[in-house]
Design a protein around this nucleic acid. Structure first.
Lengths: 146, 146
DNA sequence: TTAATTCGGACAGAAAAGGTCCTATTTGCC
DNA sequence: GGCAAATAGGACCTTTTCTGTCCGAATTAA
């Protein structure tokens, strides 16, 4: 199913919500309220978003989070990488030599790279802004599926 | 990490191997030997490949499997669908209305569709043949990553 | 000083994946 | 006709991964 972790999904949701609060900092309880997610979950998501540099954090009382970049400058691929690590569709990539014991027999050894590149490219063309606002994403190429 | 199931990976490996045996049918033990995978695993993979119509099976003594289509006619997307179900990057898609309790609050509700379409398109452009033989895959569009 | 808030990590329960095995059915061969 | 070789289909258990929550420490405004 090519599943994406729920955390990644939540990350996109929280980023989208933060776009609405603008320059004002928003704390976890407020964001949990407005997104409908649990507070601990929102807190966890924001930690990841902060480490990845998508949001700026202010500690202490009256602290909170605020977008560090515009949503249009955040490719979806980067969010996925932040939550799930490098985009690679199989386990026998990322240069992990020696990980596959049957490399000598495997006819597809090392051949997933173009696949991963294609998927990365597709996910880089789409930004979080495209997922947050209506009709923001316009495909620049004709889709295969109609 | 956008992980792909190992079965899917094995599926591609087995299909690639079957391309080498040509019109002759090959049985599970032989394919297990030549791919370096365990027999039960190969058997499981072949059942899925057979149901999906990628291979033709012959039952009984001297039976076995053989490719039903050329590898160049098998888009990677189809193999993934056979092993993992529809390609959808999140749980709140495939028209499962009512599955998301906070749909009213969710700012990205229903907005993953273009993402899924983009990934599907990328995985449809690549065939199993591209993964099986050297230099078979030539990108038709400029990649974002260099 | 106090309260609010982020930071970092740890943890247990739930869900999914992975691999194996068993039985039934089909078919070639002696 | 009987036997051996093979696929078909499903059930099962183990292992891994994900998910969600919680706790203590550090920080800062009032």
């Amino acid at each position: 199913m090519l599943r994406l972790s729920k955390l990644t999904d939540y990350g996109v949701v929280v980023l989208s919500r933060l776009a609405a609060t603008g320059a004002r900092v928003a704390a976890v309880p407020e964001l949990a309220m407005s997104t409908g997610l649990q507070e601990p979950t929102v807190a966890k998501v924001l930690k990841t978003l902060s480490q990845a540099g998508f949001v700026d954090s202010t500690r202490g009382a009256r602290g909170g989070y605020r977008l560090a970049r515009a949503l249009t400058d955040i490719p979806l691929a980067e969010v996925i990488v932040a939550f799930e690590g490098p985009i690679a569709l199989t386990a026998c990539v990322d240069g992990a030599v020696g990980g596959c014991e049957s490399a000598g027999l495997c006819p597809v050894h090392g051949r997933w790279d173009p696949v991963n590149r294609a998927v990365r490219e597709a996910l880089t063309r789409i930004t979080v802004a495209d997922l947050a606002s209506p009709n923001a994403f316009v495909e620049t190429r004709a889709p295969v599926y109609t």
